[in-house]
Design a protein around this nucleic acid. Structure first.
Lengths: 184, 184
DNA sequence: GTTGACAGGCTAACGCCGTTAGCCTAGAGT
DNA sequence: ACTCTAGGCTAACGGCGTTAGCCTGTCAAC
């Protein structure tokens, strides 16, 4: 009833959709191609999924889980009281790496409004928790998030000049945002 | 031959498209609705515009011009040697204000890849020039741009929590990024 | 003054999309 | 044995961008 995954057919559908999206891009993600990959016809999908928006919401949930895991992995082997700047650097590089490795999924999960009512409760917060903890204050967390997302999406969309050294732009932003937090 | 505007009919089409996009959103922007607003049928548009992508490129050009003007206006009445932080604050507030006032146009112009070959030469650079000049270094300019775009698009997409005080998040980012530039 | 080109409208239609209606069949439950 | 249902199917709808092909009014050239 709620958006959980239990049915195996549903899981197959999500897996097929994810593979199509990741390898062929969003234009290729149609109900017909997803069905085709499973050897069936588009209308049959509607026995398992209420509409395409739900399918996308399931993919967004996968993306949020993936990002959350990546950010945790990136900070896992840091010393417990590592300086903020170092934590932020680790998080930023995990964030960027995941996004570049799953660009279509990243775009799907970050552009447009989030279908929050179709996402597992708490997932969104869980996914961004490492960044929020590292930032030092709520305002800084939001600023850091905006910076990271901005850098990432502009890179994915090819907005920076061809030869731009993005590592340095990342470093400039992180060093600025990581400087000696105020309170909290 | 090149994407210039001279024909009056073209200008009408762009104006109609802009009005539809700004008032009814991207889903309403179809070749049929644009034509309808001018009392004609969709196929006739193709006598004036090569395809919908070109029409979108013309709207993106309008957006870039609008943003460029806004950023210049925002910094126009600043003292000539104002401190960087102050200039950045002015630019940020102009940037955000324009985006909120023209949200659909802003989204169109910033998401996905830029159709650079269909844009007037130099417009992209002209549009972002005020920010680049204010940032102090190329890396900081890119970081600041990413931050501003991130804040803006996340706000437009309703990604921040409902009651979030975004003024403070903006301030946190600007203060961090505007702090005592290194070289250049 | 006739003619011919052409700019700029039109209708019909194509192939794609998401989606609905309605049918059929295999297998499980009683 | 009978029934119910899960899960497939085809046909079709309306909307999208777009193309082909037609027609008419204007206007320059002879």
């Amino acid at each position: 009833m709620t958006g959980t995954d239990v049915s195996p057919r549903r899981a197959q559908i999500v897996a097929a959709a994810r593979e199509i999206l990741e390898t062929e891009g969003p234009d290729a993600l149609t109900m017909r191609t997803v069905a085709g990959r499973l050897g069936m016809r588009a209308p049959s999908l509607y026995k398992h999924v209420v509409d395409k928006e739900e399918l996308k919401a399931l993919l967004i949930a996968e993306a949020l889980r993936g990002m959350g895991e990546e950010l945790r992995a990136a900070t896992a082997d840091l010393p417990p009281r590592a300086p903020r700047r170092r934590v932020l650097r680790a998080i930023a590089s995990g964030y960027r790496a995941w996004a570049l490795a799953h660009s279509h999924l990243y775009r799907l999960a970050t552009e447009g409004e989030l279908p929050r009512d179709r996402l597992p409760e708490g997932l969104e917060a869980w996914s961004s928790e490492p960044l929020v903890r590292a930032a030092g204050s709520q305002d800084r967390a939001r600023a850091a998030w905006a910076f990271a997302h901005g850098m990432t999406i502009l890179e994915l969309d090819g907005r920076f000049p061809p030869g731009a050294d993005l590592d340095r732009a990342w470093a400039a932003g992180i060093d600025a945002l990581g400087g000696s937090g105020p309170r909290s």
